[in-house]
């Protein structure tokens, strides 16, 4: 039997991206889906102004509720993050995020030299937590207009996913929008171009350094029900898993690390089947890495 040409993870990522952006007619009409499905958030970063989007972006929704005059805390989004985070952790980043898939595909473009790590790599990983607190929470909450409404600061000034999934397709098909583009659109387009170029050089740079949604799910990685396990009796300490990890962590020393997106590359790299993953209540890891 012929082997399926793409990996299981890539298949899930692709199917999920198509399913959650299935309003194809929106791309031709330059309009977005306005049905009731948008009551619900999708787990990954997926702009709700993407013409195909059938669900809401959790980061956009969080800013919308925090920035509204009516609410100053969002229990709905808090509950959503607690449920998804506790069950899946950053499995969402590895399997259910369309913008993650786009970056991975860009990284497949051949280039003279790919950058695995650099001097400020590790410290820069903390930047996403700062962006989460300042741009997603504090600024929409406290910088408000006369009506008491705050802007979605992250979406407005940073998010390249919104430009790629929403801005570019809508502006290119909607003449009314074309007539009002200005500095902000060019600024966001520049951020998108930088993100695209960096994604060719570095594996998922937006996820590593910028994504506030990844920062939220990372907080659950240590306790999420879906988790990785290292069998200390099978592990020989050869370091192959560390070399295979595209997020540059050590699956043996740092099992279920904040940066682990559960991509499974380490499992494939291990010749001794010492690394396994699955849904488990409590920890199966017996030893120092539990």
């Amino acid at each position: 039997m012929a082997k399926w040409p793409i990996s299981f993870r890539k298949t899930v990522q692709s199917v999920w991206t198509v399913l959650t952006n299935g309003y194809i007619v929106g791309f031709f009409r330059g309009k977005i889906y306005t049905g009731k499905l948008k009551n619900m958030c999708v787990p990954g970063l997926n702009c709700y102004s993407c013409p195909g989007s059938l669900g809401s972006c959790p980061i956009g929704s969080l800013q919308a509720v925090l920035g509204s005059a009516k609410y100053k805390i969002s229990f709905y989004l808090l509950g959503f993050f607690l449920l998804i985070g506790t069950l899946l952790g950053r499995l969402v980043c590895g399997f259910l995020c369309p913008f993650g898939l786009i970056q991975e595909l860009l990284y497949k473009i051949p280039f003279i030299k790919k950058i695995r790590t650099f001097r400020l790599d590790r410290p820069l990983r903390w930047l996403k937590y700062g962006i989460l607190v300042v741009f997603v929470m504090l600024l929409p909450l406290f910088i408000v207009d006369a009506a008491g409404t705050g802007s979605p600061w992250f979406c407005k000034w940073i998010c390249p996913a919104g430009t790629l999934e929403g801005g570019v397709p809508l502006v290119s098909t909607n003449p009314a929008l074309q007539s009002v583009i200005g500095f902000l659109f060019h600024w966001k387009l520049a951020i998108l171009l930088v993100t695209i170029l960096l994604s060719i050089l570095i594996y998922r740079p937006f996820c590593k350094y910028i994504c506030p949604l990844g920062a939220i799910y990372a907080l659950f990685n240590k306790v999420s029900v879906y988790r990785y396990h290292v069998d200390q009796e099978k592990c020989t300490g050869c370091g192959k898993c560390e070399k295979a990890c595209p997020m540059q962590i050590s699956p043996v020393r740092e099992t279920n690390h904040l940066e682990c997106i559960r991509c499974g590359e380490c499992k494939g790299g291990c010749s001794f089947n010492a690394i396994t993953s699955g849904f488990s209540f409590g920890s199966k890891n017996k030893g120092k890495n539990s």
């Binding site: 509204s68 229990f75 709905y76 989004l77 509950g79 430009t163």
Partner: peptide, 29 residues
């Protein structure tokens, strides 16, 4: 928390934001 959020009708705020083109998100305003 999810149930409290639904009870407080936060879902309507999410829906209202999501069904109109978010001009900030796409870089217009």
């Amino acid at each position: 928390a999810f149930a409290v959020g639904i009870y407080r009708d936060e879902v309507r705020t999410v829906l209202m934001k999501a069904i109109y083109i978010c001009l900030e998100c796409i870089g217009i305003g």
